[in-house]
Design a protein around this nucleic acid. Sequence first.
DNA 1: CGGCATCCATTAAGATACTG
DNA 2: CAGTATCTTAATGGATGCCG
Lengths: 110, 110
Amino acid sequence: MNGRILPQCGVERFLILLDGPWATLIVRELLRGPQRFTELRGALTGISAHTLTHRLRRFEQHGLVKRTAYAEIPPRVVYELTPLGASLQDVLSAMNDWGTTVPEAALTAS
Amino acid sequence: MNGRILPQCGVERFLILLDGPWATLIVRELLRGPQRFTELRGALTGISAHTLTHRLRRFEQHGLVKRTAYAEIPPRVVYELTPLGASLQDVLSAMNDWGTTVPEAALTAS
DNA sequence: CGGCATCCATTAAGATACTG
DNA sequence: CAGTATCTTAATGGATGCCG
């Protein structure tokens, strides 16, 4: 569907930039502050290095995340949200508010 | 990732119930009011009957959408959001607000 | 430590054809 | 009209191993 001609409304833009189930969770984690690769991986239970790398690269390309690599031994890489990425806070809050109102029954029925 | 044990926070619930790129767009369309299958299909440019059916069935199971079938010739089926589904309005608004602030450059870089 | 390369499993989604 | 059935494709995501 991503190849389609989408009307460039706000919702579509959000969906294009935050596609995949992990995208939103990574942003939420980075909203807590700048973090290293390993910190992110530890916080996001179940994510693989492969996936985390790809998501972060994509965010970087889209200007949502800033990557800073320190040429040390061992190497250290810190990821942090750009102002654009940080402004996702409002959307995440809305999602969280809605999710907490969802009854258990809606989730078990799958 | 859906098989993982997720902390049952709000954001996770939202992501589980609105998975896939079409889910959010279907909800946005239904926020305009109850609609028939064909109306939805026409409004969601590019969606296939197959996909629309699956998404609607899933929403129905989760209590986000109510399906009403009229035994007429030709048959008529109307979908409408439940109160739970309608309460997604706030999240959609937040997404839309954020998306409109995204610069063009973030989208072209893909 | 922070990746990348490769292979593989799962799934959303499209195309097509057909039915009550 | 509103689906269902089947097949196929594309993409996300996981597992493993290697590298600077």
